[in-house]
Design a protein around this nucleic acid. Sequence first.
DNA 1: TACACTACCTTGCATTGACAAGTACCTTGT
DNA 2: ACAAGGTACTTGTCAATGCAAGGTAGTGTA
Lengths: 118, 118
Amino acid sequence: MDTVTALSFDNWMTQLRKGLLELAVLNSIAAAPLYGYDIVRRLSDVDHLVITEGTVYPILSRLKNSGLVETYIEESQEGPARKYYRLTPRGRADLHRMNQHWDNLHQAIGGLRKQGKR
Amino acid sequence: MDTVTALSFDNWMTQLRKGLLELAVLNSIAAAPLYGYDIVRRLSDVDHLVITEGTVYPILSRLKNSGLVETYIEESQEGPARKYYRLTPRGRADLHRMNQHWDNLHQAIGGLRKQGKR
DNA sequence: TACACTACCTTGCATTGACAAGTACCTTGT
DNA sequence: ACAAGGTACTTGTCAATGCAAGGTAGTGTA
């Protein structure tokens, strides 16, 4: 694979991440509150969702400003206090809509691909 | 649903479309070449993939410059000549990789959601 | 003390793409 | 002649995100 191809593919992946990472973060704290540093580690374990602190903290800030998540501090034995992020009721509602939208999108693309195989 | 929520949701959708529309366009010409105007109509029939000419032509240009698609002209009975876009071999290869990546991403998000339901 | 790891966050850059609106051309019908 | 619809494309605005890099601080350990 030549450089040009690699570049355009990488770029596409970057674009595709837009919006997606936000969805990933929201889903990751849906079950139980997590703190930022932990989110980074968890998502980095998942293929293709790798995220760094420079990306996750801005996302968390935005989510908080939008009222989708709220935070609380808790002490830790192994380091500085942790700031946990948890969904607000509205965050949960929005996440639900987002997941639905995501599912629709997936089906839409799936439909196009099926036609491609005909 | 209040204005703030609607806005942030709309914005999120816009972000999510980045990269996605390119994938949709590529998949839509995978089976058979199509001309731009037709792509607009077809994708606009699909929920959530609605796309306008101002969006699709720039995408097609990029794809052509990247060597993923090539074009040929064909006369039409009902209007001006049509410019058909068709995948190049490399376009087909890239599309395959992109679809794989897309599938992985979908699984990754799906995994997070499953945990959320535990 | 120095290092390593946990943990939070900010700044700024670089890059991009989506989309509205407008232009231009062809063909057909009234 | 004019309107309407098919068809292609460009310009410019707008806004947003991803991410690297750097900065602070607590805890434990060699």
